[in-house]
Design a protein around this nucleic acid. Sequence first.
DNA 1: GAGGGATTCAAACTTTCGTTTGAATCAAAC
DNA 2: GTTTGATTCAAACGAAAGTTTGAATCCCTC
Lengths: 229, 229
Amino acid sequence: MSVEGSLKSPAGADPGLDTRARLIEAAGEVFAEVGFKQATVRDICAKAGANIAAVNYHFRDKETLYAETIAHAHRYSVEHYPMDGGLPPTAKVEQRLEAFVRTFLAKILDPNRPSWHGLVMSREMQEPTLSLDTIVETGVRPNFHYLCDLVRELGPHLNPVEVEGSAASVIGQILHYFHCRRIIARLYRGRTDGFPYDLDLLTGHITAFSLAAIRGLEQQSRHRAENTR
Amino acid sequence: MSVEGSLKSPAGADPGLDTRARLIEAAGEVFAEVGFKQATVRDICAKAGANIAAVNYHFRDKETLYAETIAHAHRYSVEHYPMDGGLPPTAKVEQRLEAFVRTFLAKILDPNRPSWHGLVMSREMQEPTLSLDTIVETGVRPNFHYLCDLVRELGPHLNPVEVEGSAASVIGQILHYFHCRRIIARLYRGRTDGFPYDLDLLTGHITAFSLAAIRGLEQQSRHRAENTR
DNA sequence: GAGGGATTCAAACTTTCGTTTGAATCAAAC
DNA sequence: GTTTGATTCAAACGAAAGTTTGAATCCCTC
């Protein structure tokens, strides 16, 4: 009946995957786009080319499907987007910071599918649903610690609040382009340079901004230490 | 019947306000907390101590109630949280940046009610619902322009991408503490210093971080200009 | 090719939620 | 005191969405 494509595979579903895999793939896109609550299993099943009852058969319910999707995204994330960006630990700390920023941004902004793996995690950050503790401990905290180590290496004299605050500042800058993407799209509408969406440009700016900030704070800390000596 | 409180005013509703005002007040809290779609009029009416039909009577429907709530929040915001923080335009630019950061943070983090006025706007940023263009043009863009002016004043040699990128970096740092507040609460659980929630501490860090960053970028820009002369 | 487990399907069930309705209540005017 | 308009109320309606069901279909094994 349909003019193009095979008979059984509906819009956007990879026919090479079995139903269970197609469901997770479709669920990832939908959950990433609208969050857990607003996603409908009818929509997910339609995207996956599966019957509505499939989610009950292959997973128990919507919540379990979500949990499996998050788990899948997390595995994919650590495998394809290592936070050191593939650099050896001996690489210069500036390079490792840039790699961290670039990897994080790519995970979130990459318009190529499957790009939802980072998105669902970001979604989860703003609208935690279930097993938040697990996600924090296995997903967020290691990233945060790694970044704190980088900051400490760049600014050995910073106090703990400055270190953790700077790490939060870096992450905040990155996630901003995800959380406020719709507003940003309006704000920058009509630009000719690809500013808010050019990965290299964005990586360069956030890295340079953060490096300059941390070095400046470090310098102030050293001054303070010398004056109170 | 009830042991405490008056007979007619239910949980958390200010009996001094009429039903319409109580509805907006309750709606503001609920919308700020969970967003438009996930908010239920039943919940809002219960918080306001009003009948379920009240939202249909005083407003036409949930969407109109939301629009009025956003409008109310915006009016309240420009009135009570001026982005210059009440400083005269002659104040030093560093002070004006600090005032901008502090005002923005207060608008979002202030645990005192009514603090939802800034929250609904932030919510709207991540989940635009209606009249997004109006919100961007009247609420977001003026803020963004003001901040860009501050950045330009601090770094006259920065190119447009650096200016707008830096402004986005400042806003991203601030909003991070709203968007990821639930994750942050887990991440910092058990801290003794009030780090992520102390307005002075947070203002100080974000201001210092951003100032150092912009100054560093400005210095690099000057070097670049001198070397290519 | 018959049996049997796995999978898919259309349909219905149940809950939640926005909305509507028509009666009841209140308050001010006459 | 009655009238009239505004407001509040309990109840129900209808659509949307998660879940369940039992039959139909597919596919592998013997």
